[in-house]
Nucleic acid binder design. Structure first.
Lengths: 143, 143
DNA sequence: CATTTTTACTTCAAGCTTCAAATTTTAAGC
DNA sequence: GCTTAAAATTTGAAGCTTGAAGTAAAAATG
């Protein structure tokens, strides 16, 4: 194996570690302070962003999870009154998902705390680090 | 919310995206080419690294997963003959886990492919990017 | 010592996640 | 039009994951 691949493997291991730690922190934060879960937060965040015209496929593509997964998380949010499904008029295969007013309010009350928790998690990076890393990640993403 | 926290949130979103994409790629790779899963690979990799004297607690701490999780993944590896548990002599609460010779061989046949898959995933980063990002992640990891 | 607290691990229930299969609908190629 | 292929979703089985509760053993406390 080449030198380069070893360095990339080390990068990957660190990347995974930092991400898992952050996810664990955020999971804990959401559980303790808002009695909710990370997957639910992620779905709500996606629905909040694209406020309308979000299909199930859009959702799972955006979150990088399977269709089946999106289905059950939305099922639960729906049964809690936080999300709502609406069939499309033009394509009867398609289902739109959106937050209900309750879901919207719930997400807004979560979002600020989530953001400051993220800030806390990455507090030991200075602003330069943050920008450099964001740029590198952008470069890694494009495919 | 401060400017800094918004930038850190953007960083986090990108970080999560890149990590998920990589995980999905690796999961697919392991499934298609070796008929195994990411959690099993992660456990085997941890056991391979610390070749001996690895307890269940060490394992879950190392992988940043819960104790209950480590238990079931090791259960399955054990029932497939790839891992083995050994009670400690000095502390009867403690259980050591290790790869069997079969597990060792299985991991070695996985590792090279995994490494080149990781290299492929991060191929669009040049060596400078890789080193800079590794350094920043080290800093983020905290002490 | 006896008691309490901490530590290591397992078990359990609930929720998450994937993949594959099934359903329904639309689009494309004859 | 008819047939086949492709797309959007849901369902179901199996595996993953967590947090909490349970068991047992070791360490700390008085």
């Amino acid at each position: 194996m080449s030198e380069g691949s070893k360095r990339r493997l080390k990068l990957w291991i660190r990347l995974l570690g930092v991400t898992r730690r952050a996810e664990n922190d955020l999971r804990e934060y959401l559980r303790v302070t808002h009695d909710t879960t990370l997957p639910r937060f992620d779905v709500m965040a996606a629905l909040y962003r694209r406020r309308e015209a979000m299909t199930m496929s859009d959702l799972s593509r955006m979150l990088l999870v399977s269709n089946g997964n999106a289905t059950v998380v939305v099922d639960r949010l729906e049964s809690d009154g936080l999300a709502r499904r609406t069939p499309s008029d033009s394509d009867r295969r398609t289902v739109f998902v959106a937050l209900t007013p309750e879901g919207l309010a719930a997400f807004e009350s979560l979002a600020a705390g989530h953001e400051s928790e993220v800030a806390r998690i990455f507090a030991r990076l200075d602003d330069g680090d943050v920008d450099v890393m964001t740029e590198i990640l952008k470069r890694a993403e494009q495919g």
